[in-house]
Every structure is written in structure tokens, then in C-alpha cells.
Design a protein around this nucleic acid. Structure first.
Lengths: 253, 253
DNA sequence: AATGAAGGTTCACATAATGAACCGATAAGG
DNA sequence: CCTTATCGGTTCATTATGTGAACCTTCATT
């Protein structure tokens, strides 16, 4: 592996440690010679990616990533990164796909790519649907901390169609299913004749920042097709998580 | 210079470019061979620090810094803590206020709150100015350990305006003044017609981790106003130091 | 005083970085 | 339609650079 690659892996390692860590331990964890590890730490420190506590001599993640992250965020906000993913999903599935962002306890539709078919589902940008009646809402609830989820379930929930699930216990079951599978499914939850599936976009701490979902007329979706859409949504959501947060593509020698 | 150091400088360079940039131009700007630059870009890309637009083949800053920045900010909430302080200073003074962070031997602008006035000073987030020509730089130098300060003063220093002080001896005098008073002042050091004042944000060991500064058109600042701005900057910096290190958090081991 | 583990340094050696020259593709100009 | 000048990317002999066993100093523990 290249020296630069090793140094970046070392940086990742140090970042992943929840406490300031000494040279010897870092070298041990990184499976590098002490001298090698130190040289890299010094290089990384000179550029602000690592910092060393002057008193304890231990190392920790530095401030440079914060500076770079601001530049990155200024140029690539959530939307700009997410839209191509949603577009690709739309082209792959030929169904209406939308991206929602979790903000202020609600889930907002921030982008939609509509199906090219004549019979299609329309979703409006800017809309904000109840969490219990949509696939996106379920996907979000499933990955929210228990406390927030229960706070939501404690409210009275409105039924939009005869199929809308409003019973907290029944919802809990569907949420657990969703968490286990990674994607949610909603049949006629909000609008009759519509089936939709969604997957959460997870931040590095495992919390959902939004969802990607697919909505289609029920007549086009049998069990096999539903399984296809499920995995397509999930793949898109993971791709987006990776693109947003730079999940490490590690390559060993 | 070490290969790792070169790669990190290259990363900084790419981050500083406001547009996606091609290999040849990057190599030219970094003063590296094309092959060398490419190998480094590939290494950086494999770890998510750089990304290459698949269509145009051009390179840009990647998402990995965002992930690392979240880790850093979770442990050392510099920005989260600092931004409200800078905002308050901006509201109090109605002048452009900015926060800089000392990282990798340089002082980087990490947050700016711009003056509401029509005639105002603009400072860019991500910029990195020479220490001897700015108020922030002087404030930093004044509280740096002697050794680091002298290492800086030993370099040849560039003049940006006829007013830029570049003589090491004269700078030492201004630095001592700054240390005695606690705040620095720079008149036309970098940009004609601009006066700025800065105060260091000190860590518990007395070393500067950054600066808070105010920049204003000279026409608005007489001696009385300057004294006001001085003490406002100093108050903001101490408030930030206290917020960052005061009372609780910061547990040494 | 002896021990062991820490951070850090040294230097002969081996490996990984380097860069001139190259390729194929694309675009502009005569 | 050929020439020229870019571009992104690759190759490989040369050599600069990274490597790590052994070393030093310091510090706490025994």
C-alpha cells in the first residue's frame, strides 16, 4: 500500500478512537512500526489533521477536517449530492422517486423525480406527510432513537384511508419489521392504489438524516417487483450515505 | 518534504480551488509531476478525501472531511461553541467579525459574520492570510511560544501594502505591545482602508487555538471607536475561551 | 537499584516515489 | 485531412524516501 494510503488509514484510525491515544498504542492498533507511525502523525499534525496534546503527548483528531468540511459543504450541500442518486434510481425503476429530509421533527420532500409512465404517482416538492402513513415516515421512525419514536407514537394518529395503520402497537410491529429489513413498505397508507417503499439515509452516527423512496401504482407492483424496488431503494440510500459522509473504501495491501 | 506532507498539501490545494479541476492544472499549481499528482489524487480518492467527477474527469474535495469533522466537532465543539459568540460580537459592533483557527502552522478563517452596513469588509471562509499582515496573525504570534514565533519571523516576509510591517524587529515591538494589551491592531496591513483588531482564544495552557477579530473600513473608526472594538473583541475571545474550556468539559488525563 | 513501558531518534537497507517519455483521445487550425 | 497541442492516464529505470530493529531518555512501579 502507498505511504499516503497508510497515512490516511492512520488518520481514520485516530479519528475512530474516542480518547486521546499514545504513540505506542496507535502503532499497535495500526500495525505499523512506532517510528513509521510517528513520522506519519507528525506529518498529519503539521497539516492540522492530527493534534497532539502538549501535556500528555497523546494524539487525537485535529481541526483541519472541520475547515475542509466547510468548504465541501459550501460546494456540495445535501441536495446537490442527493439529486443524481435519486435521478439514477428513477431511471432504473421508471417509478416516481423522492428524497425527503428530516428537519425540525418532520420529514420534508425536498426533491422528486417523476415516473415517465402515463399512470404514475405525483409527489410535490415541499410537501410534508405524516410519518405513520408513508413508507418514508416508517423508514425514518425505524431508525430514530426510541425516545423520539415513542414521543411520536404517543400522539393521536389520523387515518387517511381505510388502510392507514393508526394503532401504536401495530405500527411498532411494522417499524420493527422495517428496521430488521432496512426498508419500509406502505400500501394505501396515504392514497388508495399507491404502494411505496423507502430506505433511510443514515449519518455516520446511525441516525437518519432523510429518506429515499419510490412510489408506484399498486397495479404495477407484484411481490417480485416489490422486492426489486425494495433493494433498489436501499442501494440508493446507502450510496447516498456514502457519498455524503465519505464512508471509507478501505483497500488492504 | 515527506510524501505524506506533499499529499496533504495537494489536498489543501484542491480544497482551495473553487471549481473542479483537471489533473494537468492541479499538477501545475502544486508544482508536482503529473504522474505524482495523479498517484496522490488516487490515494486521496480511495479514502474519500478527493472525488473525481466521473463525467468530466476533474477532481474536487471529497466527503471524508465531513465525516471526520463531525467526529472532531463532537469531541471539541469549537465551531458550535464559537459561532454564537461571533454572531453576538457582530450584532454588538455591526462590523464584519471573523473567527480563525490555528491549524497546521497556519491561521485559517473558519467563520465570518459580515457587517450589515453598506460599506463593509468582506472576509472569505477558508482563507488563510499571512500572520504578519493581519490583526489576527499578530494576536496569534503574540501568544505563541517564543520558539515558534521566532521561526516565523526568521522567514522572509512579504509586503502587501506600503503599510505592511515586514521588519522582524518592528514586528517584535508590535507583538510585545499586543501581548501587553491583549489585543492587536492592524491598519492597512493587507488591504488599504481597512483597520482590524483581534484577540486570541487561549487554551488552558495559555496557548492560542485561534483568534476572534473585527475588520472595519478605516473611515468609521476613530481612536475612541477603536478602543471600543478592542475591548469588544477581547471580551468575545475570553467568553469563547471560557465556553470552550471553562468549568466542565475538557478532561485531561 | 532494577524493571518495564512510555515517547522519541538513528541509520543501513529495501521499497516505494519519482518524472521523462510514452499512449490514445479530443479539439482547433491551416 | 493532416498537423499540432492539449488533455487524462500509464510505464519503468532511477533514486529518493520510507522503513524498522535497535537505541536513547524519561518516568512510574516494584
Amino acid at each position: 500500500m502507498s505511504t499516503v494510503g497508510k497515512a490516511l488509514s492512520l488518520l481514520n484510525l485516530v479519528a475512530s478512537l474516542s480518547e486521546d491515544t499514545g504513540l505506542s498504542e496507535i502503532a499497535r492498533l495500526a500495525v505499523l512500526d512506532k517510528a513509521t507511525a510517528r513520522r506519519m502523525l507528525v506529518d498529519l499534525e503539521a497539516h492540522g489533521f492530527i493534534e497532539q496534546d502538549k501535556a500528555t503527548k497523546r494524539y487525537r483528531i485535529g481541526a483541519a477536517p472541520v475547515r475542509l468540511a466547510r468548504i465541501r459543504e459550501a460546494r456540495f450541500p445535501f441536495l446537490r449530492t442527493a439529486i443524481p442518486v435519486v435521478k439514477a434510481l428513477n431511471e432504473e425503476t421508471e417509478e416516481t422517486c423522492h428524497l425527503s429530509e428530516f428537519s425540525g421533527h418532520e420529514l420534508w420532500t425536498v426533491h422528486v423525480e417523476t415516473s415517465p409512465r402515463a399512470n404514475r404517482v405525483i409527489v410535490d416538492v415541499g410537501s410534508c406527510y405524516p410519518l405513520h402513513a408513508t413508507a418514508s415516515g416508517l423508514a425514518l421512525l425505524a431508525f430514530l432513537p426510541e425516545e423520539q419514536r415513542e414521543a411520536f407514537l404517543a400522539q393521536p394518529l389520523k387515518a387517511f384511508t381505510p388502510h392507514t395503520v393508526t394503532d401504536p402497537e401495530a405500527l411498532r410491529a411494522r417499524i420493527n419489521e422495517t428496521r430488521a429489513r432496512g426498508t419500509s413498505v406502505s400500501r394505501n397508507g396515504l392514497e388508495p392504489g399507491v404502494i411505496s417503499t423507502a430506505a433511510p439515509v443514515l449519518s455516520p452516527d446511525g441516525l437518519p438524516v432523510g429518506t429515499i423512496s419510490i412510489a408506484a401504482p399498486e397495479v404495477r407492483v407484484d411481490d417480485a417487483r416489490l422486492a426489486e424496488l425494495n433493494s433498489a431503494a436501499q442501494a440508493a440510500a446507502s450510496r447516498l450515505s456514502a457519498a455524503l459522509y465519505g464512508l471509507d473504501i478501505r483497500q488492504k495491501r
